[in-house]
Structures are given as structure tokens and as C-alpha cells.
Lab assay of single mutants.
Amino acid sequence: TEYKLVVVGAGGVGKSALTIQLIQNHFVDEYDPTIEDSYRKQVVIDGETCLLDILDTAGQEEYSAMRDQYMRTGEGFLCVFAINNTKSFEDIHQYREQIKRVKDSDDVPMVLVGNKCDLAARTVESRQAQDLARSYGIPYIETSAKTRQGVEDAFYTLVREIRQH
């Protein structure tokens, strides 16, 4: 089974770092803004072998026109913010609204991801993020692309959301 996953969120929150940590098991430290990259990885989730087709997208506003296209083809979405960047957390709402509009559905598989949880300088409390996820009816997972904490959990949870859909 193949799953088309799309990673969305503001610029600099760590979308590529999360994806590369999942696929290649290493942490990319330097920031190089993405336009669009796709990665494929075969994994076993709950005993089922599946192929993850992951689209890593641009957070930069100037590429926002490309969003409709990949939102149409994606089956599930990782909505990523950084726990030390309140603005990126506030941006999640717009991504969710755009996904709902493009998919013409209120019920699209999504996982809210709070990345950079290895950093002490948190400005978005776990509780705020949990409340937001609960209001959307989606899971919330904290990750660190640096330490790998929660990385597999985030992507695998999204696959489970798609399966249950």
C-alpha cells in the first residue's frame, strides 16, 4: 500500500529536517529553504509493509500558489509548527483551512506536530497545542528532528489516521 503524505507549515519550522531524519536517519543542521522535494521510503507499520511517498513543501509565502496542487494529491498532512515560534503555531489554522477548502472536506487525515521540542526556549505550551488538536479532532505529537524523538511516531500516526479514514 502506498501513502501520499504531505508536510506543511511555516518556513523554518523543520519540515525538511523531520523528513530527512525519518528517511535518512540524520539531522540536517543548516537551513536551506525548500521549494519542493519528495522522498520515498518502505516501512512496516503495524505489520503492514507500506511505501511512504512524502512531499516536503515550501513554507515560504512566495510558493503558496503551489499549495493547491499538492493538497489535492496528498492523502494525509503533517501540519508542523516549531514550539519556539508562536507565529508558526498561529499559521497552522490557515494551512488547515486551505487543506479543507482544496479537499472540499472537513475530515482530512492530519496530525499536528510541534517540532524542536529539544529546545528550552518554548513559547507554545503543550497544552495550547493539545487544545488546538482536540478542537480539530486530530492527534498532537511533539518531535525533535535533532534527537529523533517522536519522528517515526508522527509519520506513522498519520498513516494510521489515513487507514482509519
Rank of each mutant, 00 (worst) to 15 (best):
G114P: 06
L5K: 00
V159G: 10
K103W: 10
V28K: 02
E36Q: 00
T19C: 02
D29C: 03
V43R: 11
P109I: 00
Q94V: 11
T157Y: 12
Y70G: 05
C79F: 12
L22Q: 14
K87S: 06
L22A: 14
K100Y: 02
K103E: 01
G11E: 15
Y70N: 09
A58E: 14
S135W: 12
C117Y: 14
Q128M: 03
I54C: 06
H93Y: 11
S88E: 05
V102T: 00
V13W: 01
H26A: 01
A58P: 13
E125N: 09
E30T: 08
K103T: 06
M71W: 11
Q42C: 02
A129P: 08
Q98Y: 13
N84S: 06
L55W: 13
E62H: 15
T49Y: 01
R127I: 14
F155L: 15
C117Q: 11
L132M: 12
V7L: 10
G137V: 09
D107G: 03
V159A: 08
L78S: 04
T34I: 04
A133F: 13
C79I: 05
D68N: 02
A121M: 04
Q164K: 06
A145V: 15
R127H: 11
Y70Q: 04
R127S: 07
T19F: 03
R122A: 12
L119G: 15
V151E: 14
R72F: 08
F155M: 15
S16F: 03
V102M: 07
Y95W: 05
G47Y: 01
A129C: 10
M66C: 09
E75D: 08
R96C: 09
I141P: 08
Y156P: 13
E90H: 00
A145H: 12
Y136S: 09
D46M: 02
G114R: 09
E48P: 06
F89T: 02
D68I: 05
V44F: 00
R160P: 07
N85G: 07
D107T: 04
T123L: 07
N115Q: 13
L51P: 07
I23L: 13
E90W: 02
E62G: 11
S126A: 12
E61M: 15
I20P: 00
H26L: 09
L52Q: 06
V7C: 11
E75T: 09
S126C: 10
M110R: 01
R163V: 12
R96H: 03
D106E: 07
V13F: 00
Y31W: 02
R40V: 03
C79T: 04
G47F: 01
L158Q: 01
A58H: 13
V111M: 09
I92H: 02
G14C: 00
M71P: 11
R163Q: 13
